[in-house]
Amino acid sequence: MAKINGNEIRPGNIIEHDGGLWLAVKCDHVKPGKGGAFAQVELRNLRTGTKLNERFRSVDKVESVKLDTKDQQFLYETDGKLVFMDTETYEQIELPGDILGERRPFLQDGMKVVMEFYEDEALSARLPPKVTCKIVETEPVVKGQTAANSFKPALLDNGLRVMVPPFIGNDELIVVNTESMEYSERA
């Protein structure tokens, strides 16, 4: 791990602070009229999800942490745990079902995800940016209705609701953006 100055912290950096691993979410550099400059950093704990606002001066040293990434394949779920397999070594690991947060419904059998590890501990998982889902229920297509800025609610096969254009009907496949959780395009 490398030590960096407190004023070098940028959003997206992962640091070790107060015995925990923290992700810098937001960073504002402040130069008050009186006293020295500092960085006001909003941190999120990678293990617990708690947030913290901390001030770092330029003379403060913090440990910058680099996470290892590995490609994993989702196999199955058992007793609230998700089982993934390393695509290179074929080792299987069990992780809590909440590691994906609100994006959990997008996880499909056999899907490849990118896991971030600190030493041997899995801290987070990233789904592919776009996933294909099937429309289970939506309002019928109305002839003559234009697609200009009008959307209607639709229920997906994974239980989530998204807004879709009016020309999308039941049993159609659509592509959903997993970051914004919004309709992207027809499949």
Rank of each mutant, 00 (worst) to 15 (best):
E16K: 12
N13M: 08
P105D: 03
V65M: 00
M85R: 04
L156T: 02
K134E: 05
K152A: 05
N5P: 13
P129F: 12
E88P: 00
G20M: 06
Y76N: 14
R55W: 07
K61M: 13
F151C: 12
M163F: 10
R44F: 05
G169K: 11
M115Q: 01
V142Y: 08
G101M: 06
M85T: 04
L67E: 05
D71E: 11
F117D: 05
I99R: 11
P140V: 04
A187G: 14
K130A: 11
Y183R: 05
A125G: 15
N7Q: 15
E42K: 11
R104K: 10
G144E: 10
I168H: 14
V59I: 14
T69V: 14
N53L: 11
T87M: 00
V136W: 10
G12M: 00
G144K: 09
P166E: 08
V62S: 04
R186G: 12
Q92L: 03
G19P: 14
I4E: 12
S180G: 04
H29I: 15
P11R: 01
Q108G: 00
R103I: 10
G144V: 08
K66Q: 15
W22A: 03
L160S: 07
S150C: 11
F84L: 11
V62M: 02
Q145V: 12
T87K: 00
F106W: 05
F167R: 14
V25Y: 00
R161S: 11
V41D: 01
V65K: 05
K81D: 04
K66A: 13
G6T: 05
T69Q: 13
M163Y: 10
G80T: 06
N149I: 07
S184K: 07
S150K: 14
Q92V: 07
L67F: 05
V114Q: 07
F38C: 03
V113D: 00
V141A: 07
R186Q: 14
E63P: 01
K31P: 11
R55S: 08
L52S: 11
F167M: 15
M111S: 00
D171K: 12
S124R: 12
A24P: 01
L127Y: 01
R186K: 14
W22F: 08
A147N: 15
T132F: 06
G97P: 04
G169S: 12
I168P: 13
E63L: 05
T50M: 09
K143P: 14
V83I: 09
E16L: 02
L95Y: 03
I174Y: 09
P11E: 02
I9N: 02
E54V: 02
P32C: 03
N13S: 08
P105F: 00
P11F: 02
E94Q: 06
L75Y: 06
T146L: 15
V30Q: 02
R47L: 10
K130M: 12
E91S: 03
L52N: 14
K81I: 01
G97S: 10
H29R: 15
N13W: 04
K152L: 03
E91T: 10
F151D: 08
Q73N: 01
G49P: 06
I99P: 06
T178F: 09
K143T: 08
S180F: 08
K34P: 01
L52G: 06
L67M: 07
K66T: 14
E16F: 06
T48R: 07
E16D: 03
